[in-house]
Write a protein that binds this DNA or RNA. Structure first.
Length: 789
RNA sequence: GGGCCCGUAGUCUAGUGGCUAUGACGUCGCCCUUACAAGGCGGAGGUCGCCGGUUCGAUUCCGGCCGGGCCCACCA
């Protein structure tokens, strides 16, 4: 027997390693600035550097890689860069935890030093995992070039963030205002609505006794925020609530503080809630804010920007909100003013990053106008192609819910600085020229004299940007907008934004908004929105649940190709979550082995040229494969790898391996000389041709195994080949189903007769449609006599 | 309270107004048949969530319900 040209007995992650290290070294997927081909650009989500890579990242980047690889084979010049997010609170929070300091309480330079330390230590684990997965990023080097790995805290990136601010400022789209907004005491900064999430928390609903001044009667008010008693401005009941009609216009006395407040009917009070009486405090939530504004009530601010109670709260002064709540409850209890307490589940607004409950505090912040652009944003949302189409609605719902402009300034340290200085004498804001990275707190103003008053002294702005203000320009950055050598002017927009559905209201929305305000157009053609990877039981993976599956663990156990096949075969992640199951990934690994074995078998034969005329059986299998070529071309273009992967796998195991290979084997060997040389050549050529086409179809999904087999057997890089076009149509006298049925019948008959598959069968009836493949049939099944029917 | 999505064998999944509902994993039985036992062959397993309607005919279209997930909203 001949030696297979594929030496290794089976596929292994060691072979994978050889290949990805070679790719890392040679960078075969480098973005080609000279190419004339149409550009296909992918705005890859930049993962946070200091967080461990989640299996969800790995899976979605694998799917993005399939998109990149298939577009390359379809003739596009693909821009597929990796970015790493290094700005903002996650870094700062880790620094605070690790070094046990509050970054806002130490010197700014010191604080930045600690953050840089965290960043230095943050291993490039994510980069390493992506490499092992065979992801075809343009480059593995960090740098400013188009396609290179970019860091969101690099001077280049921050300079661009600042340039966008300067431009938006000049367009009059940014203003500063003091208004009550979401404030996270944990982070010590204002945050946007998009960063607020709600958590069901068990809270005590406290029933507190007030006295009515005029009648001396007691009334009872339920509240979850007793610590705000000092800021109580009015007490409301519903106009339809007969229990309290007699209280209209009377005065209540706030317990402990002995302050007098009005009692009034107002539809905002719900008779069903608590006792039907509600106290309005400044501020328990944003409704209160609105209410105070509408009623012209003067708010009493009880919580300061450090999250502690201020002098207005009297005996609670200096306590944190939680401490204050405990203390005041204690005090109310002691004085017999607390009637009862109920435990209620309460939807509490918390900060998405720190998990700290939100307070409502007025601070001066910069805002980017967005409310007046809602209609434009809805229009953009309708112009985009969403994959899956249902995801569009999530964006539309969010746009419709926008009610205030976007607060973009933050009182933190490790983020892009707001590039502004102020004249010390007249307060005029001084804007620098765009194009450079500025640190106003650390460097002199860009002007000598104030253009307004001629003053010569300036003070630098200390606030920084919301991280989303940085993240919302990734497409502009990767396309090199406003950058020499960039391709933005040529391509105008980014082809594809792939991202998770949980960041539609932040990353997608803000990117569309900002790029629209800057360029006047939609920045993407397509948006691909993915669901998530959950554990085997369907629960979200989290550290606290201890159900996190690390990608490294999977890569170690299976290698990348089985994970990649699983990612395609498991389901449609734009419509549903994937359950991560070792069993299923292991199942995918079998297909990798099968592909390897099939190729190894074919590699036994010496490749030959295409014969003049192909045998009917060979024409048939090529027509079968042609169906897959058609399907894959269509589906890959729509980012659907699921259906083609399933069909490809089935073709490989069933149609090709079980039926075609079994039937053609003896003709390919032709060890007894029963076939002509032309017939033998037809078999061998077709085996190779099928393998070649299968590898081309599999290449975007299984890049490493297809790369290896293709280079050994065909001497070329499969990823530099064009995607196969449809084959010319041939008439086949029998159907695939008929043929499979026929084979199965013969196998079954032999089995029932208790004879071996290679034993002869004396008489067998075969439909005459198969006449043209008679020799293959009789030889394969060892049929002595065929009765044609 | 409003909205969106989902519901097909133990698990995952394809699919369509019409043949006996697709395929995989798992499971059971038999088999080392010379590429592959990480294999081959064969079998079991389903009222396509429930109830109505449209239709000659519904898993598919429509309405309602139940179950699951997500998002939004002023429940103090």
């Amino acid at each position: 027997m001949k030696e297979p040209k594929l030496k290794e007995k089976r596929w292994s992650k060691d072979i994978e390693k050889e290949i990805y290290l070679k790719w890392k070294e040679e960078e075969p997927y480098k973005f080609d600035l000279q190419s004339e081909n149409p550009v296909f650009s992918i705005d890859t989500p930049p993962p946070y550097v200091n967080m461990p890579v989640h299996i969800g990242h790995v899976t979605t980047y694998i799917l993005m890689d399939m998109m990149a690889r298939s577009r390359r084979m379809l003739g596009y010049n693909v821009l597929f860069p990796l970015g790493l997010d290094r700005n903002g609170l996650p870094i700062e929070m880790e620094a605070e935890k690790r070094f046990k300091v509050s970054l806002t309480k130490i010197s700014r330079k010191e604080a930045l030093k600690l953050c840089r330390k965290i960043l230095e230590e943050a291993s490039l684990a994510s980069v390493e995992s992506f490499l092992k997965c065979g992801i075809s990023f343009n480059s593995w080097k960090i740098g400013p070039g188009i396609g290179e790995i970019y860091l969101t805290d690099s001077d280049e990136y921050r300079a661009l963030t600042q340039a966008t601010f300067i431009e938006l400022w000049r367009k009059g789209l940014i203003y500063e205002a003091e208004r009550v907004n979401n404030f996270c005491p944990g982070c010590g900064t204002t945050i946007a609505d998009a960063e607020v999430v709600y958590e069901e928390k068990l809270t005590l609903f406290n029933y507190i006794k007030f006295k009515v001044k005029e009648t001396g009667e007691d009334i009872v008010i339920g509240t979850t925020r007793p610590e705000l008693l000092c800021s109580c401005a009015i007490i409301l009941f519903n106009p339809s609530d007969d229990r309290y009609k007699h209280l209209e216009g009377k005065t209540a006395i706030v317990p402990l503080y002995e302050k007098e407040v009005l009692i009034k009917a107002h539809p905002i009070a719900d008779p069903e809630k608590g006792t039907g009486l509600v106290m309005m405090c400044s501020f328990g939530d944003l409704t209160d804010v609105r209410f105070f504004r509408e009623m012209g009530l003067k708010p009493i601010i009880a919580i300061d920007s450090d999250g502690r109670m201020n002098e207005n709260s009297g005996f609670l002064f200096g306590l944190s909100v939680e401490e204050a709540r405990e203390k005041i409850i204690e005090e109310l209890k002691n004085k017999g003013l607390l009637v009862k307490q109920e435990k209620v589940m309460h939807r509490t607004p918390v900060c998405e990053r720190s998990g700290h409950p939100i307070e409502f505090i007025a601070l001066k912040e910069f805002y980017l106008k967005q409310v007046e652009f809602k209609e434009d944003m809805l229009e953009l949302a309708n112009q985009l192609n969403f994959f899956a189409p249902q995801s569009r609605q999530i964006l539309i719902d969010w746009i419709n819910s926008v009610s205030i402009d976007w607060p973009i300034s933050r009182r933190r340290v490790y983020a892009t600085e707001i590039p502004l200085w102020y004249c010390k004498s007249c307060g005029e804001a001084i804007l620098p020229e765009p194009g450079k990275y500025y640190q106003p707190w650390n460097e002199p103003a860009p002007v000598e004299k104030c253009p307004k008053c001629g003053g010569k002294e300036f003070v630098g702005e200390e606030r920084v940007f919301d991280t989303w203000f940085d993240s919302s320009i990734t497409p502009l950055y990767i396309l090199g907008w406003h950058r020499p050598g960039g391709i933005f002017d040529r391509v105008k927009r980014c082809s594809l934004r792939p991202q998770g559905k949980e960041i539609i209201r932040t990353w997608l929305y803000y990117t569309l908004l900002k790029c629209y305000l800057l360029t006047g157009e939609r920045i993407f053609d397509d948006v691909w929105v993915n669901f998530h990877i959950v554990d085997e039981k369907g629960y979200k993976m989290s550290k606290s649940k201890g159900n996190v599956i690390k990608p490294e663990e999977l890569l170690d156990r299976f290698g990348a190709e089985p994970i990649r096949l699983w990612a395609a075969v498991e389901g449609d992640i734009t419509k549903t979550d994937f359950k991560c199951s070792f069993e299923r990934i292991g199942g995918a690994a079998k297909t990798i082995t099968k592909l390897w074995n099939v190729a190894r078998f074919i590699s036994i034969f010496d490749k030959c040229d295409k014969p003049e005329k192909l045998c009917m059986l060979d024409k048939w299998i090529l027509q079968e494969l042609n169906k897959l070529i058609k399907l894959a071309r269509k589906s890959y273009g729509k980012y659907d790898f699921h259906v083609p992967a399933i069909k490809l796998r089935h073709f490989l195991w069933e149609t090709f391996a079980s039926h075609y290979v079994e039937l053609v084997k003896r003709r390919a060997y032709n060890s007894e000389g029963e076939f002509s040389q032309a017939e033998q050549r037809s078999a061998i050529w077709t085996l190779y041709e099928c393998l070649r086409l299968m590898l081309l179809l599999f290449a975007p999904i299984l890049p490493m195994i297809s790369y290896r087999i293709y280079s050994v057997l065909f001497g070329k890089d499969v990823h530099k080949e064009s995607f196969p076009s449809e084959l010319p149509k041939e008439e086949i006298p029998f159907s695939t189903e008929q043929l499979i049925e026929l084979n199965k019948n013969i196998w079954k008959k032999k089995k029932d007769a208790g004879i071996s598959l290679k034993d002869p069968l004396n008489k067998f009836e075969i439909p005459k449609e198969f006449k043209e493949i008679e020799k293959d049939l009789t030889s394969c099944h060892n049929l002595r006599e065929v009765v044609w029917v």
